[in-house]
């Protein structure tokens, strides 16, 4: 969503995703497309990500696996062998990590999308720009501090982590829902209303389907934020792969550090790719 659509400009938003892909221009179908130079069209068509990403991720995983094997844990010192035990440490941590990310992402979707819809309806519409502006500066909010503050209020554990993460990752989905709905061509809504669709029909049959790509992009950002934030869950006893990184830092064992960090990176990249797949296949046809 890096392109400044009029709606985004109106909402004072300049959009962020962790996505290196090109923005999809939504040219109004009724008017002739403005003349676009050939190199730009070609650039839009280039999607390195979807097909090559799995290869890259697999290659990275292979590299980490090879490194892991070369450590020869059975014969290495306990500072390395213990934190890197697959069955008792790394695998359960990965599961924990994904559990945290999953629940917080689900909750974010459940909360942020209806909220975003409400904030684009006439009665609440005027608060939209303010909320988007706050959401934008909210990017400076340190996840670290947020987690600790929630720890002091809710105590240790998974629940605290999930609540903190939901608050932190709410903003991209909320913002993208609002921006996506706002970017739907006025004429399309006008045509729908003119044919006698009710407001609810216009929302569910036209606005939401057309906003799906933008909303999905927001959900993908939220998911990646959550996977990243889950790395900090260890700070408040929430577990996750951050534990291994922290142990590596504390024991000054680079091997532990690198393997922990690499697994986190592989998890994040894998889910980002899945997100990209979802964005490609859940996008309504014709858009």
């Amino acid at each position: 969503m890096s392109q400044l659509t009029p709606a985004q400009a109106r909402l004072g938003d300049h959009g962020t995703t962790t996505d290196g892909r090109e923005p999809e221009g939504s040219l109004p179908p009724d008017l002739e497309a403005p003349h676009e130079p050939g190199w730009l069209t070609r650039a839009r068509r280039k999607h390195l990500g979807l097909k090559t990403a799995p290869l890259g991720i697999l290659g990275l995983a292979g590299l980490v696996f090879w490194y892991y094997q070369s450590l020869n844990l059975a014969e290495s010192k306990v500072q390395i062998a213990s934190p890197l035990a697959w069955g008792t440490k790394l695998w359960p941590q990965t599961v924990e990590h994904l559990t945290i990310a999953f629940w917080s992402t689900v909750l974010v979707v459940v909360v942020a999308i209806p909220l975003g819809i409400a904030l684009t309806r006439p009665p609440l519409r005027r608060f939209g720009p303010t909320i988007v502006a706050v959401a934008n500066s909210g990017q400076a909010l340190p996840a670290y501090g947020l987690l600790i503050l929630f720890l002091s209020m809710l105590g240790q554990g998974l629940r605290t982590v999930v609540v903190a993460l939901v608050l932190y990752a709410l903003l991209p989905v909320l913002r993208n829902t609002m921006v996506g709905l706002d970017a739907v061509e006025r004429s399309v809504i006008e045509a729908g209303r003119g044919m006698g669709m009710t407001r609810w029909q216009v929302l569910t049959r036209i606005e939401l389907p057309l906003a799906v790509p933008v909303i999905l992009a927001g959900v993908r950002v939220a998911m990646i934020l959550n996977i990243g934030m889950a790395t900090l869950a260890y700070l408040i006893g929430g577990g996750g792969l951050g534990v291994t990184i922290a142990v590596g830092l504390k024991l000054q064992q680079d091997a532990v550090l690198v393997i922990g960090a690499s697994i986190v990176a592989i998890v994040a990249l894998t889910f980002d790719w899945l997100g990209a797949l979802a964005e490609t296949y859940l996008r309504p046809k014709g858009v």
Binding site: G248, L257, V264, A265
Partner: peptide
């Protein structure tokens, strides 16, 4: 995409 703590950690070695 790479979580911050992980990317920080990867630079330590």
């Amino acid at each position: 995409t790479i979580p911050s703590l992980a990317l920080f950690a990867l630079f330590i070695p």
